[in-house]
Amino acid sequence: MYTAATRFKVVGQLVNQGLAQAVQPRLIRAIAEGDSAGARRLYRQATRALMAITWPVWIGYAALAPWLLELFGPSYPQGVDIALVLSATMMIATACGMVDVVLIASGRTTASLVNIVSAVTVTIVLDLMLVPSMGALGAALGWSGGVLVKNVLPLVQLHGLRPRIAA
């Protein structure tokens, strides 16, 4: 059930990767050249574009989850809660934009590493706590916690870089 419910998040991830590949070089160049205004503009434009493209997918997936999951079999609509967690999490992650790219490009690689270790730790701890009692929904919540940490921590850290390179 968890695997089926997560198949739809691949769509948003592919859009995110494609946009990131298109914007990353210009964003990194702007940061390297000290063009804070240009970096901010690119970051915001890319984040808005990503939200405009993917949020309708996440909202649609959340709304249509009972019927979409039924494509995998008659018992799969029980995974609607998982689909809702995944959709909400991906919407929040998308709204954060390419925060880790900006953090790394601004020379904060150690912070990025700490953020990733923190995200993995949160995922494992939540999984250990939630999966035994909640099953697949607990796994989705654990994954969600890790994704939120991975995206929100660098966003908070970038705001500490103002005015150099603020998200």
Rank of each mutant, 00 (worst) to 15 (best):
M1Y: 14
Y2D: 07
Y2W: 12
A4W: 12
A4G: 12
R7T: 12
F8Q: 03
F8S: 05
V11F: 12
V15K: 02
V15N: 03
N16I: 12
Q17V: 13
G18E: 02
Q21W: 12
A22M: 07
V23P: 00
Q24L: 13
P25R: 01
P25K: 03
R26T: 07
R26W: 09
L27V: 01
I28D: 00
I28S: 06
I31A: 06
I31D: 00
G34R: 02
S36I: 07
R40A: 11
R41W: 09
L42K: 01
L42A: 00
R48P: 08
R48M: 13
A49K: 11
L50M: 14
L50V: 09
A52C: 09
A52I: 07
I53P: 04
T54D: 09
V57E: 01
G60W: 04
G60L: 02
Y61V: 05
A62W: 01
A65D: 02
L68M: 08
L69I: 08
L71K: 07
L71I: 14
F72Q: 01
F72M: 05
G73D: 05
P74S: 13
Y76I: 10
Y76Q: 12
G79H: 08
G79K: 06
D81V: 15
D81S: 15
D81L: 15
I82E: 00
L84N: 07
L84A: 06
L86Q: 02
S87R: 08
A88M: 11
T89W: 04
M90R: 06
M91N: 04
I92T: 04
A93V: 14
A93Y: 10
A95D: 05
A95N: 06
C96W: 07
G97C: 08
G97Q: 08
G97F: 09
M98K: 09
M98F: 15
D100S: 14
V101C: 05
V102E: 02
I104T: 09
S106G: 13
G107D: 02
T109F: 10
T110V: 15
A111Q: 14
S112M: 12
L113G: 11
V114D: 09
N115C: 07
I116V: 13
V117F: 14
S118Y: 06
S118Q: 04
A119T: 03
V120H: 08
T121N: 00
T121I: 10
V122P: 05
T123E: 11
T123I: 08
I124L: 12
I124S: 06
L126A: 10
L126K: 04
D127W: 12
M129I: 15
S133I: 09
M134Q: 11
M134W: 14
G135C: 05
L137V: 11
G138F: 04
A140T: 02
A140C: 00
L141G: 04
G142S: 01
W143Y: 14
W143K: 09
S144W: 02
S144G: 02
G145F: 02
G145Y: 03
G145P: 00
G146C: 03
G146L: 04
K150I: 12
N151D: 08
V152T: 05
V152D: 01
L153E: 06
P154T: 06
P154N: 02
P154H: 03
P154L: 04
L155R: 07
Q157N: 10
G160D: 10
L161N: 06
P163C: 05
R164W: 13
R164F: 13
I165E: 10
I165F: 15
A166N: 13
A166W: 15
A167G: 11
A167V: 14
